[in-house]
Amino acid sequence: MKKLIAVVTLLLAFSINANAQDKSELTSTDKGKKEAAMLTEFLGLNDTQNADFARLFTQKHTVLEDKTLSAERKQELTRVMDAKIRASLDGNQIEKLEKNPELLKKLIN
């Protein structure tokens, strides 16, 4: 009986630990919202623009989750993300974003 209780306790302990690890990973939606918030904070975007960028970045992370994605496809996604970001911003915002290449690289890759 003691062994059975010990086995059940260990089984529950390992299953709880595995569930805790699963919850710590960010979903593509969370990653997209986080990147949109960084861009909004840096450029001072409005709520509508923030929501639009959140959807765009969520879509990016959803595509990047595909393990069969080729290097060419990833490169094309980077080019498309850059074009969409630039199309959504005005000249002053683009200029300000280009002065922060780390942020721009994080957003398009």
Rank of each mutant, 00 (worst) to 15 (best):
V7T: 14
A83V: 08
S24L: 07
Q93I: 07
K106T: 15
H61R: 05
T27F: 04
L39C: 08
N92F: 02
K106C: 08
A54W: 00
D30N: 12
A51I: 02
Q49A: 10
S15M: 13
Q59W: 06
K23P: 03
N19T: 05
S88N: 14
I16H: 08
A20H: 11
N50A: 03
K34V: 11
S70A: 15
R55T: 12
T68M: 10
N46V: 04
A83I: 10
V7R: 11
D22V: 14
G91C: 06
E65H: 11
F57I: 04
L104K: 15
L43W: 12
A20N: 11
L12V: 04
R55F: 00
S28A: 12
Q93A: 09
K33D: 13
Q75N: 07
I94D: 03
K106V: 08
A54M: 15
L10G: 09
R55P: 00
L104V: 15
N109V: 03
R79Y: 09
S28E: 07
S28D: 06
P101N: 13
H61I: 00
N109D: 12
E102F: 01
Q75G: 01
A13H: 14
T9N: 06
I108H: 12
V63T: 10
K60S: 05
L64S: 06
F42I: 02
M1K: 04
R55V: 09
D52Q: 06
E98Q: 13
K34S: 06
T29G: 02
L69A: 06
A83W: 12
S15I: 13
T40G: 08
K67C: 02
S70K: 13
L89N: 05
I108W: 08
F53C: 01
E72A: 15
G44H: 12
L39T: 04
T68S: 15
T78R: 07
F42T: 00
E95G: 09
I16M: 13
K67W: 03
K106P: 00
K3D: 14
E25V: 11
L69R: 14
K33L: 11
F14I: 02
S24A: 05
L45G: 04
A51S: 05
F42L: 04
Q93C: 07
Q93E: 09
L56W: 02
T40F: 11
Q93F: 03
L12C: 08
L69M: 13
L69N: 04
I5Y: 03
K3S: 12
N109F: 05
T68V: 04
K84H: 05
L104I: 15
E41K: 11
